[in-house]
Design a protein around this nucleic acid. Structure first.
Lengths: 223, 223
DNA sequence: TTGCAATTCAAACACTTGTATGAAACTATC
DNA sequence: GATAGTTTCATACAAGTGTTTGAATTGCAA
């Protein structure tokens, strides 16, 4: 495999260009120009353009998913197989939000690439996302263990809403900033995480008369 | 303008094809073949492909936005300029959800087209969406009037989360069905609306000690 | 050094795309 | 029924795309 220099130069250039300009108007010729390699190198090393994109996306989402599961596992082990729902939700949305939000000028190329991936949703990426269900199932399981009284349907809806808030906030972060005239501070990632977690927690725990647990105040108020 | 037959045949064919196969792999040639008209007709009647897509999207979103505002205005007039937050939120997410969810086999072409538009996000559509901020501002205003004690920032976050849940549920409805093995019934649109509204309401009202208002139970429990 | 496989390269290929053209057909008005 | 304006049509255009090819180069082992 020699030095792999060409291969990794392509990966780096592609990620940078996609992050900056989106998938729509970056061609292979742009990428190889940026990487300083020959056009044919992409097909030689990756087989096709789609496989290149897929490799980029897989690499990044494996990292995020691993971080998610690490947090989840740690929480469940500490709680003897049962973690508080807030902690589970934080493990679910925290890594993604931390990976994609934060001060724009210090956002990594990887983060900007993942934002693009979540906005543009090109075919090879959609294919990979469809395979993420098993991963989500692990969280659904942990949530059920955490809230055994809750119906399965409610758990899935809670999971859906948690992901909704996290991903939509990433996708539409610019719009929220503009709409709120900068009043919503999307650079304070931990605040965003706590807002999402607290709302999702309410969604999952409210309306249950058995538990009598008071609805948790918004986390930022408790801090 | 004669009979406009060609023009509307193009619009109908385009909407149908985009709804079925997405923007990615539908060409002008596909559209004119489906419509039974000449290739040049698209540029003659619409100027360009992007303007055709834009016209389709604008038509549909104008309809949704009008419905939203109609509901909002009715609610505020009935309440003397101040509507309950649930009703405002229902006006915000109801029309969109009703337009895009529901039994798959009876989903209108328009609905399926709008789902595509929300998944694929092609440039001409993005441009139009960016102009929707004024529309959202009207809802933010109504929400502020409804919850005068709430900080502006919290209002924007609540609005953001409400849209998040609605749009994400539409975008990822297939995945939610698969994840829940069909247990989450996305065909029951009114149930979905109430779930979104109740969670968004909790997000906007919880943690406020002044109001002492008990957090509302999930609306489906109250029914 | 020789030989062999892996890699790089310039060039071309094959195809699709949206758009433009200019003549033909049609429609309505006078 | 001639005329002017609109609409349709077949066809061509120009450009860009991902991919393939086959020769050249490189790097390494025998």
């Amino acid at each position: 495999m020699a030095s792999d220099h060409t291969r990794s130069a392509i990966l780096a250039a592609a990620e940078r260009l996609y992050a900056d300009r989106g998938f729509g108007d970056v061609t292979l010729r742009d990428i190889v120009a940026e990487a300083g390699v020959n056009l044919a190198a992409v097909n030689y090393h990756f087989g096709s353009k789609d496989e290149l994109i897929a490799e980029l996306f897989v690499t990044r989402s494996i990292a995020t998913n691993r971080e998610r599961l690490r947090e989840l596992k740690a929480a469940e082990e500490q709680g003897g197989g049962r973690a508080p729902i807030e902690v589970i939700l934080r493990a679910l949305v925290g890594p993604t939000l931390r990976g994609c939000l934060g001060p724009e000028n210090q956002r990594s190329t990887a983060a900007r690439f993942m934002i693009r991936a979540s906005i543009e949703s090109v075919p090879p990426i959609r294919r990979i996302k469809n395979r993420e269900i098993d991963h989500l199932r692990k969280f659904a399981g942990a949530m059920r263990r955490s809230l055994p009284d809750r119906s399965e349907v409610d758990i899935y809806w809670g999971l859906n809403f948690a992901l909704a808030m996290a991903h939509h906030t990433i996708r539409e972060s610019e719009r929220l900033t503009k709409l709120s005239e900068g009043k919503c501070d999307l650079d304070d990632v931990e605040d965003v995480v706590e807002r999402v977690v607290s709302v999702a927690t309410m969604a999952l725990t409210a309306g249950r008369t058995e538990s009598k647990a008071p609805v948790r105040a918004l986390a930022r108020d408790a801090r």
